[in-house]
């Protein structure tokens, strides 16, 4: 997919295609990135829920594979925190992380030890704490030493079925709203709409790139890095399922895809974006540290710190080149107020 899109944008630039309007860029982003991303998420989540109905054993390779595929699809869209994903806090319910106070395992252990009937009913499950819902809760149910063995097998099995069914319900609702109405709001700005100009619509997508990169550098990498004196490998995202590095790889690819679409009409910005992403992606391709356990030893830590710097460098290009092109000014206070 990444290669396809690259070929596509390079062609545009190389053949000197007529300058694309902001509206064209938004439409391409919707058709190649946003809508397929949410469709994939809804489809993989349904597969996950179906698999769990058949086989809810945490050790089942079919179940863990379905978990991996659906989680992959979520990471591919997790930077787009606007529109349908934010209705009823759906994205928060799908992805309660970081969990600095350990609310997820506490909530799950509470449900399991009480054998709370709400854990048996996917429709009612929307009322439990968001910390006990979504992909990160599911990781605990499948991989955590304590949660995945707590209470009775039958209740935990039912809970896995409920959590996956809830994920399917949430992701289908997001996907349907994007297709039915929200994409059109971005495609056709109006004087009374959420987006009133093509610039505002493109800026929403820009913000997704910018905040996605921030989360990647500061949270996905920053949390496990901690400080040199006190590295925190168990604060890495999804380290229990050994997916920490994978999430960074997938997130970088998704952010690249969107950033390249948004810069497709400007050779200079497009090239700068490509180069910056290339450096970070080449770097992570040479790292083999699935759970970022290496933050604790000097050499393993060094490569992850360098990767974090490469991501900062992408952010600089996004802020100084992509932003101004889309009418987003990078002021000292505007960028980083409080």
């Amino acid at each position: 997919m990444k290669r396809l899109l690259l070929a596509f944008s390079v062609t545009l630039v190389a053949t000197g295609a007529p300058a694309q309007s902001l509206s064209d860029l938004t439409s391409v982003a919707l058709d190649t990135h946003v809508l397929p991303g949410y469709a994939r998420l809804a489809a993989q989540s349904q597969v996950l829920a179906d698999v769990a109905q058949d086989d809810c054993d945490a050790a089942s390779p079919v179940l863990t594979a379905a978990y991996g595929d659906a989680f992959d699809a979520w990471i591919g869209v997790s930077h787009m925190r606007f529109g349908p994903s934010e209705v009823d806090d759906r994205a928060f319910a799908l992805a309660f992380w970081p969990d600095s106070r350990g609310v997820t395992p506490r909530s799950l252990l509470g449900l399991i030890s009480d054998e709370d009937p709400i854990g048996l009913d996917a429709a009612a499950y929307a009322d439990v704490s968001i910390a006990a819902r979504g992909f990160y809760a599911l990781e605990f149910l499948l991989y955590d030493d304590a949660v995945a063995t707590a209470g009775s097998d039958s209740y935990r099995c039912a809970l896995i079925q409920t959590v996956t069914a809830d994920i399917a319900i949430l992701t289908q609702a997001i996907d349907a709203e994007w297709r039915d109405s929200y994409a059109d709001l971005l495609r056709h700005p109006s004087d009374t709409g959420i987006y009133r100009s093509d610039e505002e619509a493109a800026q929403e997508l820009f913000k997704a790139v910018s905040t996605g990169l921030e989360f990647l550098g500061d949270t996905r990498l920053g949390r496990p890095l901690g400080t040199f004196d006190r590295p925190r490998p168990t604060r890495a995202e999804v380290w229990r399922s050994q997916r920490s590095q994978r999430h960074v790889t997938l997130s970088l690819a998704a952010l690249r895809e969107l950033a390249l679409v948004l810069s497709a009409d400007d050779v200079q910005v497009h090239t700068a974006m490509e180069n910056a992403f290339d450096r970070a992606q080449d770097r992570i391709a040479r790292i083999d540290d699935p759970a970022f356990a290496g933050v604790s030893d000097p050499s393993g830590r060094f490569v992850i710190e360098v990767l974090q710097q490469e991501i900062s460098a992408i952010r600089t290009v996004v802020r100084n080149e992509l932003g101004p092109k889309l009418g987003v000014v990078a002021g000292f206070n505007a960028l980083d107020g409080d």
């Binding site: 928060f92 970081p98 600095s100 968001i130 500061d218 949270t219 949390r223 925190r232």
Partner: peptide, 14 residues
Amino acid sequence: THPDSGRTKLNIAT
């Protein structure tokens, strides 16, 4: 917020 996650906002939903 918690220093282990920098300025990441942890509780927007609630």
